[in-house]
């Protein structure tokens, strides 16, 4: 086992079960991190000496990973995988199923680049465990189009040039698709409340669009065109 695997949190094994019983998991993590630094230095030295591969003599005491079989429904297909329980839905999509449309921006639920639809609702896939998503229908950016026929939200983003680098775009589009359904249901936003609109579908002003899209950040600042794209595709929605 290479030290690199330890560092990335991929499945590792403890020396013995007794080792684990002697310490709580927090302590074992701390040890593994220190050991990694030592091991990483050892790898560097070994590489300089022309060795192809290095094993640390002080084997890190890392708590044993828990893996479990999972069945996930993604874009209408069933996927059966055995994953570390720590795996988020986002990492499952990108690293295990190679559905790389959903992006990892912050990995902390702050940027919205990882937005996917779970049972038709937009969520941050970086904060949802794959295990928790079992039993739900997941739709990613890859599942929005019907063959070469793009979803109207995708068309609208193209039409309005609603991106620059494009990294946040899959999340922005998934968010827009969910926003369209939320409008149909008559969901409120805090802007509708502030404008005194408390029942039914609120008028979709630009202020409403900005509030409802606030969970998706765009580092390039393509907001004016994003608002235009959302405005166009939701035309007719709202009072």
């Amino acid at each position: 086992m290479s030290t690199y695997e330890h560092a990335t949190g991929a499945p590792c094994t403890a020396d013995t079960a007794d080792d684990l019983a002697e310490q709580d998991l927090y302590a074992s993590w701390e040890i593994s991190r220190r050991s990694f630094l030592v091991s990483a230095a050892a790898v560097g030295t070994s590489a300089a000496a022309g060795m192809a591969h290095a094993e640390s003599s002080a084997h890190p005491k890392v708590a044993e990973a828990h893996t479990m079989p999972m069945e996930l429904r993604i874009n209408g297909e069933t996927h059966r995988l055995t994953l570390d329980t720590r795996t988020t839905l986002l990492d499952t999509l990108r690293e295990h199923l190679h559905l790389t449309g959903s992006k990892k921006g912050c990995d902390h639920g702050q940027c919205g680049a990882c937005t996917v639809l779970v049972d038709g609702r937009r969520v941050n896939s970086c904060l949802l465990l794959a295990a928790s998503a079992m039993g739900s229908e997941i739709t990613t950016i890859e599942g929005l189009s019907n063959g070469d026929d793009l979803h109207p939200a995708q068309e609208s983003f193209l039409e309005h040039d609603a991106f620059q680098c494009g990294y946040c775009t899959p999340g922005q589009i998934c968010s827009t698709v969910a926003l369209m359904d939320e409008l149909k249901r008559g969901d409120a936003s805090v802007v509708s409340f502030e404008s005194g609109h408390r029942e039914g579908v609120p008028p979709l002003t630009d202020e409403e669009i900005r509030e409802r899209m606030s969970g998706n950040l765009c580092r390039c600042g393509a907001y004016p065109n994003i608002v235009a794209a959302v405005r166009a595709v939701t035309k007719g929605a709202g009072a």
Partner: peptide, 18 residues
């Protein structure tokens, strides 16, 4: 409505869905 307004003031639509 006070509760609705407070909830809608927090986080983002994606986070409120979870």
């Amino acid at each position: 409505p006070l509760l609705s307004m407070a909830l809608l003031s927090g986080a983002s639509p994606q986070l409120r869905n979870l």
